[in-house]
């Protein structure tokens, strides 16, 4: 496994939509390198014959009947919105001019 460097962190920050300053990227790269190094034994712990467990307590087929439940009014739905117009959530332009 490759060590994690500043460019990696910059890429990850873009994927995660967190703006980071150059200084922050450097600091984070250093911290993550240490953490990643400390967890690397995990990849060698289990052989191919060991199945993955994604749920601690196995269950299956947990369903809901197709019956209509409660809804919000538009006012309730928008009550926490940072910005709204015409009963809808308002967001800045989605694409930069292209």
């Amino acid at each position: 496994m490759a060590a994690i460097n500043r460019d990696d962190v910059a890429h990850l920050a873009r994927l995660a939509h967190i703006e980071m300053s150059a200084e922050e990227l450097d600091r984070m790269a250093g911290e993550l390198a240490v953490i990643v190094d400390s967890v690397k034994s995990v990849s060698e712990a289990a052989g191919d014959d060991v199945p993955a467990t994604s749920h601690p307590i196995p269950l299956s087929n947990v369903f809901r009947e197709d019956v209509v439940g409660h809804t919000f009014t538009a006012e309730q739905a928008l009550s926490g919105a940072p910005d709204a117009a015409e009963d809808r959530f308002k967001v800045p332009a989605i694409l930069d001019e292209d």
Partner: peptide
């Protein structure tokens, strides 16, 4: 979407 000032979400 191109050139829009803002978008509304429903």
């Amino acid at each position: 979407i191109q050139g829009a000032d803002y978008s509304l979400v429903d």
